[in-house]
Lab assay of single mutants.
Amino acid sequence: SLSVDNKKFWATVESSEHSFEVPIYAETLDEALELAEWQYVPAGFEVTRVRPCVAP
């Protein structure tokens, strides 16, 4: 099958004044980091952490 098993990760994104967490959907932690950097670094943010979303 061609289905992709995307998992939810939380990326911590920082600017000079703010820090916030955004959801990233990817297959692996490395891919989540790449996606977060691709989305947020060009906008002037720094991705400081990516972690798996742990269900309660």
Rank of each mutant, 00 (worst) to 15 (best):
S15A: 06
S16F: 10
I24G: 00
A36T: 03
S19I: 09
R51H: 05
S3F: 08
V47A: 02
D30N: 09
E27S: 14
E31Y: 05
L2Q: 10
Y25L: 04
S3D: 08
P23M: 14
Y25R: 04
W10P: 00
F9G: 00
E34L: 14
A55C: 13
V50M: 06
P42A: 12
Y25F: 09
V47E: 01
A55E: 11
A26E: 01
L29Y: 07
E34C: 12
E46T: 14
C53T: 05
F20Q: 03
N6Y: 15
T28E: 02
P52V: 11
H18R: 11
I24W: 02
V50D: 00
A36L: 06
L35S: 05
R51M: 06
S3T: 10
V22C: 07
A43E: 09
S1I: 10
A26T: 02
P23G: 06
S1Q: 11
W10Q: 02
A43M: 15
E34T: 12
S16Q: 10
V41L: 10
S1P: 10
W38E: 13
P23A: 14
A55T: 10
K7N: 07
S16D: 08
E27Q: 14
P56N: 12
S19K: 11
P56D: 11
V4D: 07
T48P: 03
C53L: 04
R49G: 13
Q39S: 07
S3E: 07
P23F: 12
S15R: 08
T12F: 07
C53M: 06
Y25T: 04
R51I: 08
F20E: 02
E27F: 13
T12Q: 05
E31R: 13
E17M: 11
T48I: 13
D30Q: 14
V50I: 13
R49L: 12
S15H: 06
E31Q: 13
Y40P: 03
T12D: 01
S16G: 13
V47Q: 01
A26K: 01
E34I: 14
E37R: 15
A26W: 02
V22P: 00
I24D: 00
V54T: 12
E27D: 10
A11T: 02
V41A: 11
Y25W: 14
V47I: 08
L35V: 07
S19P: 02
D5Y: 13
P42C: 08
P23D: 04
E17W: 14
I24H: 00
S19Y: 07
F9C: 15
V4Y: 11
P52N: 05
W38H: 13
F45T: 00
I24C: 05
E31N: 05
K7T: 07
S16A: 11
F9P: 00
A26M: 03
K8V: 13
T48V: 13
E17P: 05
S1Y: 08
P52S: 08
R51T: 07
E27T: 14
P56Y: 11
E27I: 08
P52F: 12
N6P: 13
V50L: 06
A55H: 11
A32W: 03
V50R: 01
N6E: 06
D30T: 10
T48C: 03
V13Q: 00
E21V: 09
E17S: 13
A26R: 02
E14V: 14
L33D: 01
A11E: 00
F20Y: 07
E21G: 06
P42L: 08
D30H: 11
K7A: 09
D5L: 14
